[in-house]
Amino acid sequence: MGMVSEFKEFIARGNVLDLAVGVVIGAAFGKIVTALVDGIVMPIVGVALGGVSVSDWKYVLRPETVDAAGAKVAEVAIAYGAFIQTLIDFLIIAFVIFLVVKAYNRMRTPTAEVLAAPPEDVLLLREIRDSLRR
């Protein structure tokens, strides 16, 4: 019964729910960024590079051929353009997450005024000192 109660305590802490929400939001955000990159960024890059879609970039190792029986043999190619597009997706997502975490940490960090406030025991000792002077 110890393991079951530990598991209930783990679930009750809320960390699992927070993690699940983060994963779902992250997946949805990834779809948004992929749509942004596929629909806006990469077409602009393709136009700048002469009208070629970056995702179509590839290095052909063996071109498509027709064998003696008349059947087509598919080409063998390294599709590095799709990798570059996925890399751009990742960099944009990582940058935006960095900005969100940075903003969250800035809001979470106490201001300098709060940090400069003396501890309660020091305030109490000052009150005692001031009352003894009177």
Rank of each mutant, 00 (worst) to 15 (best):
S53I: 05
I88C: 01
M3Q: 08
V66M: 09
Y104I: 09
F83P: 08
E6H: 12
V16Q: 00
I25Q: 08
W57F: 08
M3C: 12
G70M: 02
G50N: 02
R62S: 01
K72A: 15
Q85S: 13
P43N: 08
I93K: 12
P118H: 06
N15S: 09
A82C: 05
A69D: 07
T34C: 09
V47T: 13
A82Q: 07
Y80H: 01
P43F: 03
T109Q: 14
V101K: 14
P118M: 04
L115T: 09
V60L: 07
Q85I: 07
V37P: 03
Y104E: 02
E9C: 01
E120M: 08
A103C: 13
I88M: 05
A20K: 05
E127S: 10
E64N: 13
G70I: 05
L132V: 14
V16H: 00
Y80W: 00
L49N: 05
S55Y: 04
L17Y: 01
P118K: 03
D121E: 14
A82G: 07
L123E: 10
T65K: 04
L49W: 06
Y59R: 11
S5V: 06
A116D: 08
S131M: 12
S53M: 06
V96R: 00
A28C: 11
L124N: 15
A103E: 14
V37S: 01
G30K: 05
V4M: 13
A68F: 03
V52G: 09
A28Q: 11
P110D: 11
I88P: 04
R133F: 08
R133P: 01
G30Q: 10
